[in-house]
Design a protein around this nucleic acid. Structure first.
Length: 895
RNA sequence: AGGCGCGUAGCUCAGUUGGUAGAGCGCUGCCUCGACACGGCAGAGGUCUGGGGUUCAAGUCCCCACGCGCCUACCA
C-alpha cells in the first residue's frame, strides 16, 4: 500500500462532499430513529450579491462543527441553508452593471429591471453555494431557501396584513432618514454616524421692530431658510423676557416666534436653538409639540426648493450653505464661526450624507413587540446569549430604547408592499391583488410602488424558511431552532427582530441560544473591509493550507476578536499532516488487524501505555464533549490537538511501536495493531466535526471501517465517518492512577534525555540506565517498563533497584516520587560541570520550596485556608524536600 | 457624552466558580532513530500595563490611572 508522506488536502476535499450530499447525509431524514431528539440551525442567509468572506467562513465553521457533532451524537439534525435578496445592495449592484451598458434602471422600467435582477441572481447566486460546498458545510441543500421565493413572499404578505390589521403597521408622514443618492428612505440602523471635523456657525436673528436679537449656533446654516421658530430653555434667565416675542428671520422676510422648550440645553452654544421642523429630527419633534409650520426647503435630491427663496432654489445644499453664510456676513449677522467636531449621518451603503426629510412611509410599531421580547428575556432567559456578557445587555438596552421602524423602501428589488390604493385614495391592505379587489369592491387599484426593507423578510427566516404559514412537519420538529450563530453586527438588525416576530407569529422564541462570534481583524488589528482592501479571501487560504486546517484555526477563534495570521493556519496544516502520518504508520502496519471498538476496554492486564492511552482517549472525549456543549470551540481544539499530537503520536505510537512492528505475526502483534487502529479511529471521529475531509479520507481506508461503526440511528446509511457515533467517554477507563504512573515513566525518560542532551552524548551512543526507586509502586512501574525505557532511551541496559548503586562517574537526576536515576559516563563526565548542572536543579527546588514554606509559615494560612489546601501544600513541600535531600546526596556522591 | 471590552513569553492568543502561569509561531542546541524535517529530542524566555484595596492567598474580585478598540446617543 502506497501512502504519500505528505497530506494533500485537495484530493480529500474533492473526494467526499458530493457523495455525502448525494447520499443524503446532510438531510435529517437520514436519521431512522423515530425518537431521536432534534437539533436545528438556520443559516444567517448570506447576501445573494456576495461571495464568501472570512466572516462567513468563521460562522459556517462553527455552525458546521456543532451540526456535525450533534449529528454524530444521534440527533435528528437540520442545518437549513439559504440566501437573502439583500434589497439595496443587490439593486445597486445590478444598477451599476446596467450603467456599464449605458442604461439606467428607469430606461428599462420596473418589470424589466426586476427580471434582470432575477437573471443576475440565477447567474451569480450559485457562486456562494459552490464556495460553501468547498467549506464542507453539512447543510441540507434540499431545503435551500431564498427570501424572495414565492412561499417566503407569501409569509411576508401574511405577516404584513396581520400586523396591519392589528394596527401595528401604519402609514404615516414624518421625518425620516433619506439618502439623496439612493433615493430611498432608510431605517435608523442603516445610517452610520461618523465623527467629522466641521464648523459651528453663530447666526444672529434680529428682534422684529426693535433692538437686539438672538444668536443661534448651527452646523447647517442652509436650514435656517426653513426655520419656523427659535427655542430656549424655559429656565434660562437670559432669554426669559424674550420668550413670546417675534424675530425677523433674515433672508426670508418671515417672522418667527421665540418659544420655550425643555429640550434646549442652556449650556450648549448660545442656549438658543433655531428650529427647522422639516429638516431635523429634534426640531421635528419640537415642531409637533408647539404646532409649528413645516417649511420644506430641501428636496429629495438634496437641492433647495422654491420655498427656500428664489435666490436659493435649485442650489445644492452645500452651495446653499456657503451662500447663506456669505449673506449673513454681508448683513453683519454672522457673529462667529468656530471649529467643531460632530458626528454626521451617512448612508451605510453609499456614504452619502443623509438628509432628514418629511415623507410618507410605512412604519412598524415596536412597543408591544419589544415588550414581549424583553419579557421573555426576563422570565425565561431566552435567547441565551453566548457570551452572555456583554451581549445580553447590548440586546436588552437596545430594545428598551427602540423606536418605530421605517419598513418601506423606494426600491424595485424586494417584496412590494401589499397595499393598494383606490382612485379616491383609500388604502386596501391584502394578501393578494384579488383579495384587495374584493375588499375594495373595484378593480381600479394601484399597488403601492414601494418595497419592504430587506430585514422585514429576514426577520421571519426561522419560520418562513420552514414553510410558515403552513403548518409543516419541519416547523413541528425543528422550531424553535437550537442555536443561532452570527456576528455581533446584526444583533439589532436581525437577531432582535427575529425574536419579536417569532414570539408574535409562532408564540415561541426562534432559537434557544445565540452564539456571537468574534471578528477577524487583519494583521494590524484593523477590521477587514472592501474599501480598505485588507480582506483575506478564505478561498485563497483553503488553497494554500487546506480547508481542514483553516477550519481548525477558525474554530479556535471563539467569541473574541483576533488578528489574522497565516502562521496559525500553517501550524494546523502541520497538524493535519501529523494526523496523516500517524494514520500512515498505523495503516502500514495493519496487516491482520481491523478496527475493533471491543479492543478499547481497559483491562488491568494491558500494558501501562495501553491503559494510559485509553484513559487519555476517554478523558479527551469527555472534555471535548463538555467544551462543545458550552460552545467553547477553542478549548475543544486545544484538547484534541494536545491529545493527538502529544499523547497519541509522541508517546503512544512510540511506546506501542515495538509490538506493532514486530517481525512475524503473533496474537500480541495483532492485538497491538488492532488497538492502535481502534484508538486512531476514535480519534478521527473526535476530530471529524472540525476536520471533515482528512478524517473521512483516512477513515475510509481503515481496515474494518464499515456500517457496523455507524451510530445506531444511521444503520441503513452507507459507511461514512460523519455518521459514526461520537465517542462517549467510558468513566471506568479514565484512571488518575494510570495517568500518574505514566507521568512517572515520562518523567524518567525526559530526565535521562535531558542528561543525554546536556552531556552531549550522541543519540546513537547506547547508555546504561540505573534507577533507584524507594517507592515500591514506582519501582514496579519502572520494572514493568524496562523494554520501553530501553527503546526510548536507546539504552543497552536498565536496572531498577530500591537503592541506587551507581559508579561515581555518573550523570544523575532526581525523579518525581523521590527516585533517582544515574547514567554511568566513565571518562566522559566532567565532575565540576555535573555538579553545576545539579546545583542549578537544586536552586530551582530551593526557590520553589522557599515560596511554599513562606506561605505555610504564615499562621493565618493554616487558620483560614481550607484543610485540604493546607495538606496539599504540606505534601508538596515534603515532595520537594525529599527530592532536595536526594539531590544533596547525589551531589555529595560526586566528591 | 454615556456604555462595554481589551492590555499575560519577541509575536498571535488560552487561562470557566481566587489556591503550583500555558499553547502555537519565533529563538538556542542536538538529531536522516524508516509514520511524519509540514518531523523528533532537549532547552531559554513572563515583577500577568501601572498604582492602591479586599483576602491566609489575586492574572483571576473592587477602586483609580495610562494605552488600545468597539458600540450606543435627539449635543443644535
Amino acid at each position: 500500500m502506497e501512502i504519500p508522506k505528505q497530506y494533500d488536502p485537495k484530493e480529500a476535499e474533492q473526494n467526499h462532499y458530493e457523495r455525502w450530499e448525494k447520499q443524503g447525509c446532510f438531510a435529517p431524514e437520514i436519521n431512522r430513529d423515530a425518537n431521536a431528539p432534534a437539533f436545528s440551525i438556520v443559516i444567517p442567509p448570506p447576501n445573494v450579491t456576495g461571495s464568501l468572506h472570512m466572516g462567513h467562513a468563521l460562522q459556517h465553521t462553527m455552525m458546521d462543527v456543532i451540526t456535525r457533532y450533534k449529528r454524530m451524537c444521534g440527533y435528528r439534525t437540520l442545518w437549513l441553508p439559504g440566501m437573502d435578496h439583500a434589497g439595496i445592495s443587490t439593486q445597486l449592484m445590478v444598477t451599476r452593471e446596467l450603467k456599464k451598458e449605458g442604461v439606467s434602471r428607469h430606461d428599462l422600467g420596473r418589470e424589466k429591471f426586476v427580471e434582470r435582477v432575477w437573471k443576475w441572481k440565477q447567474e451569480s447566486g450559485g457562486q456562494i453555494t459552490t464556495q460553501m460546498r468547498r467549506e464542507g458545510v453539512s447543510v441540507d441543500w434540499s431545503r435551500e431557501k431564498f427570501t424572495m421565493d414565492e412561499d417566503l413572499s407569501r409569509a411576508v404578505r401574511e405577516v404584513f396584513v396581520r400586523l396591519y390589521e392589528e394596527g401595528m403597521i401604519y402609514r404615516g408622514n414624518r421625518i425620516v432618514n433619506w439618502c439623496p443618492n439612493d433615493q430611498t428612505v432608510l431605517s435608523d440602523l442603516e445610517v452610520e454616524k461618523i465623527a467629522q471635523a466641521g464648523k459651528l456657525y453663530y447666526l444672529r436673528y434680529p428682534v422684529k421692530n426693535g433692538d437686539g436679537g438672538v444668536t443661534v449656533a448651527t452646523t447647517r446654516p442652509e436650514t435656517m431658510l426653513g426655520d419656523t421658530a427659535v427655542a430656549v430653555n424655559p429656565k434660562d434667565e437670559r432669554y426669559r423676557d424674550l420668550v413670546g416675542t417675534t424675530l425677523a428671520l433674515p433672508l426670508t422676510g418671515r417672522e418667527i416666534p421665540i418659544l420655550a422648550d425643555e429640550f434646549v440645553d442652556p449650556e450648549f452654544g448660545t442656549g438658543a436653538v433655531k428650529v427647522t421642523p422639516a429638516h431635523d429630527p429634534n426640531d421635528y419633534d419640537m415642531g409637533v409639540r408647539h404646532n409649528l409650520e413645516q417649511i420644506v426647503v430641501i428636496d429629495p435630491q438634496a437641492k433647495m426648493t422654491e420655498a427656500a427663496g428664489t435666490e436659493f432654489a435649485g442650489l445644492d445644499r452645500y452651495k446653499a450653505r456657503t451662500k447663506v453664510v456669505e449673506k449673513f456676513e454681508e448683513l453683519g449677522l454672522l457673529e462667529k464661526v468656530v471649529d467643531y467636531e460632530f458626528s454626521i449621518s451617512k448612508c451605510e451603503r453609499c456614504k452619502t450624507v443623509i438628509e432628514p426629510l418629511i415623507s410618507t412611509q410605512w412604519f412598524l410599531r415596536m412597543d408591544e413587540l419589544r415588550d414581549e421580547a424583553l419579557k421573555l428575556l426576563a422570565s425565561r432567559k431566552k435567547p441565551q446569549f453566548i457570551p452572555e456578557v456583554p451581549y445580553e445587555k447590548v440586546y436588552s438596552s437596545w430594545l428598551e430604547n427602540l423606536r418605530d421602524w421605517t419598513i418601506s423602501r423606494q426600491l424595485w428589488w424586494g417584496h412590494q408592499i401589499p397595499a393598494w390604493y383606490t382612485a379616491e385614495g383609500e388604502v386596501i391592505v391584502a394578501r393578494t391583488e384579488t383579495e384587495a379587489r374584493a375588499k375594495a369592491g373595484t378593480g381600479e387599484l394601484t399597488q403601492d410602488p414601494d418595497v419592504l426593507d430587506t430585514w422585514f423578510s429576514s426577520q421571519l427566516w426561522p419560520f418562513s424558511a420552514m414553510g410558515w404559514p403552513e403548518k409543516t412537519k419541519d416547523l413541528d420538529t425543528f422550531y424553535p431552532t437550537s442555536v443561532l450563530m452570527t456576528g455581533r453586527d446584526i444583533i439589532f438588525l436581525w437577531v432582535s427582530r427575529m425574536v419579536m416576530m417569532g414570539l408574535k407569529f409562532m408564540g415561541r422564541e426562534p432559537f434557544a441560544d445565540v452564539f456571537i462570534t468574534g471578528t477577524i481583524l487583519d494583521a494590524h488589528g484593523q477590521r477587514m473591509s472592501k474599501t480598505k482592501m485588507n480582506g483575506i479571501d478564505p478561498l485563497e487560504v483553503f488553497d494554500k493550507y487546506g480547508v481542514d486546517a483553516t477550519r481548525l484555526k477558525l474554530a479556535s477563534v471563539g467569541s473574541t476578536d483576533i488578528r489574522w495570521s497565516d502562521k496559525q493556519v500553517e501550524s494546523y496544516r502541520n497538524f493535519a499532516n501529523k494526523i496523516w502520518n500517524a494514520a500512515r504508520f498505523a495503516l502500514m502496519n495493519s496487516e491482520g488487524a481491523t478496527v475493533d471498538p471491543e479492543s478499547l476496554d481497559a483491562s488491568p492486564e494491558l500494558a501501562l501505555h495501553d491503559r494510559w492511552i485509553l484513559s487519555r482517549l476517554n478523558r479527551t472525549a469527555r472534555d471535548v464533549r463538555k467544551s462543545l456543549e458550552s460552545y467553547e470551540f477553542h478549548e475543544a481544539v486545544q484538547t484534541l490537538y494536545h491529545f493527538f499530537w502529544d499523547d497519541f503520536c509522541d508517546w503512544y505510537i512510540e511506546l506501542t511501536k515495538a509490538d506493532v512492528t514486530a517481525e512475524g505475526a503473533s496474537p500480541q502483534r495483532t492485538a497491538a495493531r488492532t488497538r492502535l487502529l481502534s484508538v486512531l479511529e476514535q480519534a478521527l471521529r473526535l476530530l471529524h466535526p472540525f476536520m471533515p475531509y482528512i478524517t473521512e479520507e483516512l477513515w475510509q481506508q481503515l481496515p474494518g471501517a464499515g456500517k457496523h461503526l455507524l451510530h445506531p440511528a444511521y444503520r441503513d446509511a452507507e459507511p461514512t465517518i460523519m455518521l459514526a457515533a461520537y465517542p462517549e467517554p467510558k468513566a471506568d477507563s479514565i484512571s488518575d492512577a494510570t495517568e500518574w504512573e505514566m507521568e512517572a515513566l515520562i518523567d524518567l525518560i525526559t530526565r535521562v534525555r535531558n542528561i543525554r542532551s546536556e552531556m552531549q552524548i550522541k543519540p546513537s551512543e547506547p547508555i546504561t540506565v540505573l534507577i533507584g526507586a524507594p517507592d515500591e509502586k514506582l519501582r514496579g512501574v519502572y520494572t514493568a517498563n524496562t523494554n520501553p525505557i530501553i527503546r526510548l532511551l536507546r539504552a543497552s541496559e536498565v536496572s531498577v533497584r530500591e537503592k541506587l548503586d551507581a559508579p561515581r562517574a555518573s550523570a544523575r537526576a532526581v525523579l518525581v516520587g523521590g527516585g533517582e536515576v544515574a547514567v554511568p559516563l566513565a571518562g566522559l563526565i566532567d565532575f565540576a560541570q555535573e555538579r553545576q548542572r545539579l546545583s542549578k536543579e537544586k536552586e530551582k527546588l530551593a526557590a520553589e520550596a522557599a515560596k511554599l514554606e513562606a506561605q505555610l509559615a504564615n499562621p493565618q494560612f493554616a487558620e483560614r485556608a481550607p484543610a485540604e489546601k493546607v495538606d496539599e501544600l504540606r505534601a508538596r513541600i515534603a515532595d520537594i524536600a525529599q527530592r532536595a535531600a536526594q539531590l544533596d546526596q547525589t551531589i555529595a556522591s560526586l566528591d
